[in-house]
Each structure stands twice: as C-alpha cells, then as structure tokens.
C-alpha cells in the first residue's frame, strides 16, 4: 500500500528535525524523520516517552512548525503557509483526537461536534445534520444533549472522535487516544477506529501500547528522534 497513481500521499515527511532551545541546552527532539503515509493507511507510531513521538504528532497536526526539513500534507507544503491558511488546513484536512479528550466544557456533545463546522463556515442546518451523523457513527446519537461532564471517559473520547470526523478530514490524527481510558472504553475506541479504517479513512495513531498498535496495518517505531523500525503487518481485528 504505497503511493499509488498520481494521487500524492496524505503525509509526506522529509527529513524533518525539531530542536527545542538553543546552544548547549538545545534538545533535539527529532533528528531527521522521513515518513510517507498513503491514502487509507492505518499507521501506529510507537516509542518510549522522550522518543519524539509527541513532537512528531504536533508537527503532523500543524500545531507546531519543524526546525528543518519539509512536510507535505496531501501535496501542500505546510511550511509555506501563513497562520490563516494553517487554520483552514487544520480545519479541513485534519481531525484531532487527544489523550485528554479536549472537549470544550459547558457545551453539549452536539455543539462540540459542530464546532469545527462552525469555524469552517457551514450553515446551521447542514451542521446539525452532519454532527448527528458523526455522533451516530460513534454510537452516541442518544447523548447529543449531554455536556462533557455528564459523559464517561470513553463516551467523551467518542465525542472527540466524532468531532474529528465531522469535517471528513484527509487525516485522522490520534495522540494516545486510549491513554486515559479503561480497557472496555479502549476496546470501544479501537473498534471505532477499525471501522473507520475499513471505510477508507487514513489514520495515524501515536501510542506506546502494543494493544493499540496491534490494530494498525503498519507500525513505525521511533527512538531518540529517529525512525528505527517500519513494518507492515496484518492487523488482528479485535472480536
């Protein structure tokens, strides 16, 4: 499953480096990472803490800029975009799932899911329809009116997944999505990811849990800011 035809890969990371600080105290979080992810792939990025996987995630999600190297997202060179275009890119191309859910408090699940569409300028009626569809997809249609503090961790994370999906992004980016969940909720979320992968979504999951990585088709291992392993495997679909 490499880049096929004229279609550019979803992710094309070329020799990206990231240095925090300067001089003697400089920390090299990434020391030249190259990675290509094709449309429809399901990749797990693994590594111990300090391996640079979170830094990579922030760069992939356009939340941070690399110190060196190039990063193309669906053929667009991210390094050349100004702040306004980056915001549009984050809005349309990327769906985020965070370890700590990052739902906005005191807003209903429905409103949280609608938020990216609101920033994308979608009309209210269309927004409501798509948000309901996304919530149905993660099996939470009956919880649309609940606020985050009325939902369990697993439910909150599913709302977050719905929010990430609702704009039909090119890339679904998840940073330790099951890190704060019990095993039942973990299975829920991984099940949602499996289904999404089957329908052709491109998913990149950052994790340190083998259980999560077991669902992916490809596992990339990072150590000390470098890719040390990149294997393709047959996913063992749970249940």
């Amino acid at each position: 499953m490499t880049a096929e035809g004229a279609r550019p890969p979803v992710l094309d990371v070329r020799d990206v480096t990231k240095v925090y600080g300067a001089g003697d105290t400089a920390v090299h979080a990434l020391r030249g990472v190259s990675l290509t992810v094709a449309q429809g792939d399901y990749v797990a990025v693994m590594g111990a803490s300090g391996s640079g996987k979170s830094t990579l995630m922030n760069i992939l999600g356009c939340l941070d800029v690399p110190t060196g190297g190039r990063y193309l997202l669906a053929g667009t060179d991210v390094g050349r975009l100004d702040e306004r275009r980056l915001a549009i890119l984050r809005n349309r191309r990327i769906g985020f799932v965070f370890q700590s859910f990052n739902l906005i408090p005191r807003m209903s699940a429905q409103a949280n899911v609608e938020l990216p569409l609101a920033y994308g300028g979608v009309r209210a009626a269309e927004r409501r329809r798509r948000a309901q569809a996304a919530l149905r997809e993660v099996g939470l249609a009956d919880r649309a009116r609940h606020e985050p503090n009325e939902l369990s961790g697993g439910q909150q994370q599913r709302v977050a997944v719905a929010r990430a999906l609702v704009t039909a992004p090119t890339l679904l980016l998840a940073d330790e999505p099951t890190g704060a969940l019990d095993s039942a909720s973990t299975a829920d979320i991984l099940g949602v990811f499996d289904r999404l992968s089957e329908t052709g979504r491109t998913i990149v999951v950052i994790t340190h849990e083998d259980e999560v990585a077991a669902h992916a088709r490809r596992v990339v291992r990072l150590r000390d800011g470098r890719v040390v392993e990149d294997v393709r495997r047959v996913p063992e679909v749970a249940r």
Binding site: E83, A87, I88, P105, Y119, G120
Partner: peptide
C-alpha cells in the same frame, strides 16, 4: 486551553 482546542480544530485568529 479552550483557546488551544479551538485553534487546533481550525478556529481562525
């Protein structure tokens, strides 16, 4: 943090 979330999901400045 809320501002960060909003920006991450694409809120323009």
């Amino acid at each position: 943090r809320e501002i960060g979330i909003r920006k991450a999901i694409g809120a323009p400045r």
